[in-house]
Design a protein around this nucleic acid. Structure first.
Lengths: 216, 216, 216, 216
DNA sequence: CATGAATGAGTTTTCATTCAT
DNA sequence: TATGAATGAAAACTCATTCAT
């Protein structure tokens, strides 16, 4: 828990700087992509000068990493914690984890970062590696361990967890693609929450052990 | 059948040039995206100099449009023709159209163009407009008219065609996202052909009129 | 009086920069013309790098406009003021205005800008429009109003002011042509000041009311 | 006198080529200036390919020289001849020479070449030198020798011929400046023929020997 | 800590000139 | 002769990064 209340305002300001910069950077990276975002614009939107930005972040790539660490990674951490401290049925846990993902990333500006990585990672290998290590691998492991928990506890059928992980990830990517690539052009109606619910109903039902299993 | 044998070599060359350039441009646009592709590299890959490229294409955007017209648009044209000249069951037609899309775009370098547009259209409004006009609108109309054909001929249930069109498009986007954004990092196994087959089985079955309908 | 003494050096520098750049640009535009002047050379002559120039001027055309606003326009403003605040004979005023033009433009590097516009305006329509609006129209109005003042006060004959304006402008163009196009090649002697004096003697005498008029 | 009538058409065509190219070049040089004229446009306007142009002219500068030799120099030659073969009063000769200049250059596209040289010679030293040698020097000598003829024959006062030469040249430059730099912008009325007549009346009258001289 | 002036490498585009056919 | 495809040097403009104050 952060505690800044008993410091003079200018000092709180100083502590706030990085967050203001990260917020500005998130906005612009999502709006324009990585390559097309100019650091000067980030600085201006945060109300500081270009030079100041370099006091907090070594360069553009580090700024981007900080944005990811700020907007995506904590969600993973929380999810890991919630798994560790959960006692109920694995299907319920899976549903909770994915709804949380939707609430905190999919339905949020952070989803733009996921889209950005899909779009531009190829041009920035270091970024791709970073994202792979800190997000993809960790997220995949999270889903896989959740599936394994279900299988171990006999709440899920003993499916191929590698395949099943991808099945669970696919609708997330679909929703992000829809939101950032299709929706801006095509005014078609897609209700993301309903889509996700439907998917979860189908997928989790499909994971249940064959007969007489309790519906979560 | 083209007959170029009795022309002087440099004239054959001139006819080949645009195709060599388009091939090189397709490669590089797919590899690096629109903004990050340097025209000099396109020229070099085609074995010519920078200036030569400008003999055939007015500028970078026109080169890109030409690539799209060369790799994507003809597939749409052929699909339209195949619909016009088809007599059988609409489900069969839909299956054929989507398999053809997979064979000629999804499973091809051309799919990289689709991904590129999803990734970068936001930064190049003129390109976005062009793609919307020449590909998206036309492709959507194609799927919709196919659905309408099925409904008119009582081969499909009278579904909401706008929604159903999106349902049919979704797996194509998913496959492309997987191929260009997930697969390069994650060595997870996704069998696109199997995925598409499964989807078609499910979706087309779902479109059939309720009872006693003939299965295509 | 400007007071820059108690500012840090780089801040004084910043104030000086635009003037140094404008001076360098004036030099090179006059030497080489608009199209043939390279911005890199302008920057180098001002002792800065190419990029710095773009901190102060948006592009080549804006730099040129700034040069005109800096070297030509103020002279027009001063002339307008001097007319407004003058009580004497219009012939004297006309003589003063034209001598001032000679001192501040004709006999100055600024005259090169006038020559440049005559030479290149055809190739840069936006520049031509700008010059027409900010210099030609305003200068012509100035001469015309001066003639009208003389006629109203019965110090000049009631001549056709449109024609007379052109008559007054002609020798200015002649001098500039001579200076920039003839003199550099032909070592012929033309004394511009004498030429202008002679012209003014003749023209102003010719403008006086017929009989018994006081000679200014 | 050129005689091409008894040759086959294609051969006449071959001989016509250079003239068609020169005509196209004259048009474009006058319209756009030297630097901004593209050889491809010249070739296209003449109905040939770019390569062909290089069969007849070594490069852009040589093409320009040929244009000058074709449009300006012959007028000088004719004027020299007319002087050599003239018996009458020098004032009449001068008037005839200058009217001829107006008819064949000043009032002609060729005047655009004079303007072009005034505007761009500074950027193309070799061109400047060429024009100086083949036009300026020769033209100046022509006027000077005409003045000297008048003085020798006591038809003119013994004026300073160097100065007087410039006086005679000035209105030619003025007319060209007006035509190419002022008229396109300013819809002011200047009647060039009248201007020239008036000038000649004044200047030639001023050159006559003091008393009792015959008016030409 | 904060500033913002300065830098210069990198990219698109143009066009005179060459040369194989 | 005639063609026109090909070349590559040159110039405008952008922006991540540095550093003196």
């Amino acid at each position: 828990m952060q505690c800044t209340e008993n410091k003079p305002r200018w000092e709180r300001r100083k502590e706030a700087r990085p967050h203001e910069l990260l917020a500005a950077a998130l906005d612009l990276f999502v709006e324009r992509g990585f390559a097309s975002t100019r650091l000067e614009d980030v600085a201006r939107r945060a109300g500081v000068s270009k030079g100041t930005l370099y006091l907090y972040f070594e360069n553009k790539e580090e700024l981007f990493k900080a944005v990811v660490r700020n907007s995506i990674v904590p969600v993973l951490g929380d999810a890991e914690d919630s798994i560790a401290g959960f006692d109920g049925h694995s299907a319920e846990l899976m549903r909770s984890v994915m709804k949380s993902w939707w609430a905190r990333i999919g339905d949020t500006k952070a989803s733009g970062i996921v889209k950005l990585v899909m779009a531009e990672a190829g041009n920035f290998p270091e970024l791709a590696q970073f994202y792979q290590d800190e997000v993809v691998t960790r997220g995949t492991r999270l889903i896989r361990s959740l599936l394994e928990r279900g299988i171990e506890r006999a709440e899920f059928r003993p499916v191929d967890v590698v395949q099943a992980t991808q099945v669970m990830v696919a609708p997330m990517l679909t929703l992000i693609t829809w939101k950032h690539s299709v929706a801006p052009c095509d005014r078609g109606e897609l209700n993301p929450a309903a889509f996700l619910d439907t998917f979860l109903d189908m997928a989790l039902y499909g994971l249940l052990p064959a007969a007489g299993a309790a519906r979560p």
